[in-house]
Amino acid sequence: MHPITTAHYLALSLALLLIGTVGVLTRRNVVIILMSIELILNAVNINLIAFSHMWQHATGQVFAIFVITDAVAEAAVGLGILIALFRNKETVQADEIDLLKW
């Protein structure tokens, strides 16, 4: 069995990025789209931690903390907007949000 290298982590994160992308592009439910974006950000973090380990310093981990911070902020605002929209329109389906052309 090969030892696990940084490249393995990279391949894994690429796969996760792909899954997240597919989720954003195909799902109708806005909540699930937001979750897919979380998947993408986690793919980023896998990369960062792997590289951080490889270079033997903490920079990547610090970067990952910022990515998580941003994920929190985006999720909070995104869900807030979703609630405002739901109050006006009673739907969370992305393609029913159609006053503006999608």
């Binding site: 911070t69 941003d70 929190v72 902020a73 985006e74 909070a76 605002v77 869900l79 807030g80 907007i81 609630i83 405002a84 109050r87």
Partner: peptide, 15 residues
């Protein structure tokens, strides 16, 4: 950034 997130989610979610 976090301050903005707090302000933003409050603005959006409050009636």
């Amino acid at each position: 950034l976090l301050l903005v997130a707090v302000v933003g989610s409050v603005i959006m979610a409050k009636k």
